[in-house]
Design a protein around this nucleic acid. Sequence first.
DNA 1: ATTGTCGGTCATATTTTTCTGACTTATTGT
DNA 2: ACAATAAGTCAGAAAAATATGACCGACAAT
Lengths: 116, 116
Amino acid sequence: MTDNTTIINHNNCPGQDILNVLSTKWVPGIFKVMHFNNEPIRFSELLKALPGSNKQSLSVALHLMESHSLIEKRVVREKPLHIEYNISDTGTYLLDVFKTLSEISTINKQKEIAAV
Amino acid sequence: MTDNTTIINHNNCPGQDILNVLSTKWVPGIFKVMHFNNEPIRFSELLKALPGSNKQSLSVALHLMESHSLIEKRVVREKPLHIEYNISDTGTYLLDVFKTLSEISTINKQKEIAAV
DNA sequence: ATTGTCGGTCATATTTTTCTGACTTATTGT
DNA sequence: ACAATAAGTCAGAAAAATATGACCGACAAT
């Protein structure tokens, strides 16, 4: 089995591993969809919710997120057997990161406006 | 077929631009070196401080960081004419992000240990 | 028994990012 | 004058990330 959940840490920074996960394509999008969805979501729903995405990349992204405990995967052995994903407590913690990042982009935009 | 789960597609992430900068190779390393250096640093010093890096990639990284106001570039017209790079106020703000990210990785490591 | 859906995997292609090595311009030291 | 250093740029090569399309196993419905 090929291990696609290992990304090389080039800078020896403690936060680098999570940063690499966050910067994987579709991960912020998955995060956002899950956050606003507010309930467990299924693979096919994510696929539909993220136009332009594809199974393979979503699969890689979800495995990465899961292996870093940012989301939880649950096999629901019920009526229609299916699989649910949701944001973990650790993942919820990341909302602060997104918040800070968007604050920075707001600061930068204000500076651009002031410069004109 | 019954699509009762309404998923709002907020694909436009406000923090994405900065996230892309942060996830550029060598950017976290540059950040780290600058942070611990505590004084303006020069291109050639960064190159030495980041083994495995190269001029081209550092140049790209620095331009990205500068264009997003994370660092400041200054041409020093003195004795030996040279160029200095500094973390900006905005850049300093990012330290919180790294802090949060490293906290998450600490949480994950503790979970791994607990699982053994 | 066949068809269809869900949640994927696999091999391969394409795209994007990063690296290498040659070259440049300006200044400084001998 | 000549070589050396600093701070890069440029084109092309190599590596890494992402996408495509075929396929698969479990289950459900016709």
